[in-house]
Amino acid sequence: MFISTTPINVRYAETDQMGVVYHANYLIWFELGRTTLINDLGFHYADMEKEGILSPVVDIEASYKRPVRYGDEVRVNTWVEHYDGLRVVYGYEVMKEDDTVCVTGKSVHTCVKKETFRPISIRKRFPEWHKEYEKVKKKRISKGL
């Protein structure tokens, strides 16, 4: 399975009064992970936007397992959980250096035209992206994940 890794050094501003990372910041970290994954596959989200296409989140979830605190170093592991040519489901794990899983999550995205927000087919509009996502999906299926 192709997994992209994004290192995060937890900043003080990302924590709450309890001294742990504020829950909404994990969603920002998921976005960083997704962007890194796309870059690691050889693409740039900004190029898609230049063509008038956006990829909004249509669903997102996070499950908090262990606290992350100011000064911790964590990594966000990101992979393609599911892809069908129209939707992409990205999977995420936020892990400490000792491999403790702190947060898991998923985000579901579609691609839409910027002007109308009407969905487009990734398969047709971005055939190279489609080819790479299919390749990543096949690796995931062949490993039984």
Rank of each mutant, 00 (worst) to 15 (best):
E128S: 12
L41H: 06
R87M: 04
R69M: 05
T100V: 09
K50S: 13
L86Q: 13
Y92V: 13
D16C: 00
Y22S: 12
V103L: 12
A24K: 04
R118D: 12
C102P: 08
D47R: 08
Y22V: 12
E132A: 15
R69N: 07
R11L: 11
P56H: 02
R34K: 14
E73S: 04
P127Y: 03
E14S: 13
D72W: 01
K96Y: 01
S107H: 09
I120C: 12
T5H: 11
P56W: 00
V88L: 12
L54C: 08
K113T: 00
Q17T: 14
N77W: 11
T116V: 06
K143T: 04
V20S: 10
E115R: 02
N77H: 14
E97H: 12
R34M: 11
S121F: 03
K106C: 02
P127A: 04
Y133F: 15
S142F: 01
E51Q: 09
V74M: 01
V76C: 14
V68M: 11
N9F: 02
H109L: 11
T104R: 14
M18D: 01
F2G: 03
R66L: 10
K131W: 02
T104Q: 13
G42P: 05
P7I: 04
V108F: 09
E31G: 03
M1R: 08
Y133L: 15
N25V: 05
G42R: 06
E134D: 09
E31W: 02
D99L: 08
E14G: 12
N9V: 03
D72T: 06
L54D: 07
R75F: 10
S107C: 14
I122Y: 10
E132H: 10
E115Q: 05
T5P: 00
A62L: 08
F2D: 04
T78C: 07
T78M: 04
G33V: 08
M1Q: 09
W129L: 07
T100C: 07
K106V: 02
K143N: 05
E51F: 03
Y22T: 13
Y83H: 10
I28P: 03
A62C: 09
I120K: 00
